[in-house]
């Protein structure tokens, strides 16, 4: 239908892409590599191109390695499939990103191209490409990532806020806890032992949420407690300023600005504490 395909002159319009997938049977188990050859249809006008998730779905239906050995379907997590929820985040050809928005035409445009899939390395693996992100929720709780309201008083008509103020907070609220910024960060390390979580570096996503909640009219109430955490072990001072986080954020959240802002807030908080006591 499209001239692109005619030019290629391939009747079947398909190419073969080799997937190298890092597999693991469960927490603490050794990992291994398995390879799959997946037929990928070339895109034609209006029909769209395959992406990594559709290839994983193909593998689930045909779980046979290139050696012809039948194996189990590859496990991966996903939710919305439209880059809104962040569940399908993994490392693709060395880059952390959502697999639902990784098009085969961009990551493996030619016949015989290879695609390497690995789980994120900063979280414990549940199975294959499926990781356990509980620590992220623990850290959001650690910084008190909520607005303290107990429901005992009438909220009334609510506060007025200008569109400009709203826009500023809007950007920060787009975080979907996907984990890309943590994977890319050299200071954020795998911490399988839950007991260590409250001392380990929280990473950019959580620092940015600290800023976000400290900007909220009622959320400010807990600003001091948040800054106590941020100035303690694993807080903002553990940031090594590599700035990888902001480069990989799929929502283009200004993470380094957030780190700068929370850094300043903690400094002021500490000075104030030094002179005026708690």
């Amino acid at each position: 239908m499209s001239s692109k395909n005619d030019a290629k002159g391939k009747a079947a319009n398909t190419r073969t892409v080799r997937f190298n997938i890092k597999r693991c049977d469960g927490p603490g188990q050794p990992s291994r590599w398995e390879r799959f050859d997946v037929p990928v249809q070339s895109s034609s006008a209006g029909s769209g191109s395959a992406n990594v998730i559709s290839c994983l779905q193909w593998i689930a239906a045909n779980p046979v390695t290139i050696e012809g050995r039948k194996t189990t379907p590859v496990s991966f997590d996903c939710g919305c499939l439209e880059e809104v929820c962040g569940a399908c985040t993994m490392v693709i050809n060395g880059q952390v990103r959502q697999s639902c928005s990784c098009l085969m035409d961009s990551c493996a445009p030619n016949d015989g191209d290879e695609v390497t899939l690995e789980p994120m390395s900063k979280f414990p693996v549940n199975r294959d490409l499926f990781v356990d992100r509980s620590r992220l929720f623990n850290d959001l709780e650690r910084i008190r990532g909520w607005v303290p309201i107990d429901g005992t008083y009438d909220l009334g008509a609510g506060p007025r806020e200008t569109p400009e103020q709203q826009q500023q907070r809007y950007k920060l609220s787009e975080c979907m806890s996907c984990g890309c910024c943590l994977e890319a960060c050299p200071q954020y390390t795998l911490e399988p032992d839950e007991k260590e979580w409250d001392h380990a570096f929280v990473g950019a996503a959580v620092i940015s949420q600290t800023r976000y909640f400290n900007m909220h009219a009622t959320g400010k109430e807990l600003a001091k407690q948040r800054l106590d955490v941020m100035s303690g072990p694993g807080g903002v001072s553990d940031c090594g300023n590599a700035q990888n986080c902001v480069k990989v954020c799929p929502k283009e959240i200004p993470l380094t600005e957030s780190i700068g802002s929370v850094g300043r807030q903690t400094t002021i908080h500490k000075i104030r504490e030094f002179f005026m006591g708690r």
Partner: peptide, 22 residues
């Protein structure tokens, strides 16, 4: 309406009118 205002109080960011309302 009460549930919308409650979500806002809990931190949800709704788009605003020029005069600052939801």
């Amino acid at each position: 309406g009460d549930r919308v205002r409650e979500l806002e109080a809990w931190g949800a960011i709704f788009d605003r009118t020029r005069d600052g309302k939801i």
